[in-house]
């Protein structure tokens, strides 16, 4: 009897080690794995809300149109109606939230217009393009084309 217990002693030691290792593993795992891991799949579920909470920089054209009905009217019938305000005026969510706090850019006509309308062979052929050296007279485009309704 005594002899057989002695034989088993090393097994018991191994068992104790194994139990200790499992305990350490479970402890580390409880700290390292986020609480909501695996809710929707193999990732931290609250990361979705973290990413969704980022601030918006572009307010979107419907926000601008609520206050600037005069500009909407001026743009009526123009081919530019599909160009949203913030393409030309830059991101303006801060302005839309509080119009007095910040003002969107008032873009300089020439640079802005040429960005889209300068001639380039890779552009679709039916897109209206101009050669700035031949068209107009080096002056601002808005001298001839009203900025919110550029068609003459």
């Amino acid at each position: 009897m005594r002899q057989s217990l002695k034989d088993r002693e090393h097994l018991l030691r191994m068992l104790a080690l194994l139990v200790a290792a499992i305990a350490v593993f479970l402890f580390v795992r409880s700290i390292a794995v986020p609480k909501d891991y695996g809710r929707f799949g193999p990732f931290r579920a609250s990361a979705l809300d973290d990413i969704a909470a980022m601030p918006v920089v572009f307010a979107g054209h419907s926000a601008c149109e609520e206050c600037h009905s005069d500009v909407v009217e001026a743009r009526q019938g123009s081919k530019h109606t599909q160009i949203h305000c913030e393409i030309c005026h830059g991101p303006a969510a801060a302005h839309a939230a509080d119009p007095t706090a910040s003002k969107p850019a008032r873009p300089d006509g020439r640079e802005l217009c040429l960005n889209c309308h300068v001639i380039n062979v890779a552009r679709p052929a039916d897109f209206p393009q101009i050669n700035p050296r031949e068209h107009g007279d080096e002056g601002p485009c808005t001298a001839c084309h009203p900025h919110h309704h550029p068609e003459p």
């Binding site: 990413i51 572009f58 054209h61 599909q82 949203h84 913030e86």
Partner: peptide, 23 residues
């Protein structure tokens, strides 16, 4: 690209689509 996840969750379109003049 996160497909502007913070925007589409708020019902807005992505910044690139908002900025595209030709659709």
């Amino acid at each position: 690209c996160s497909l502007c996840y913070h925007r589409i969750r708020r019902g807005l379109t992505t910044a690139c689509c908002e900025a595209c003049p030709t659709g």
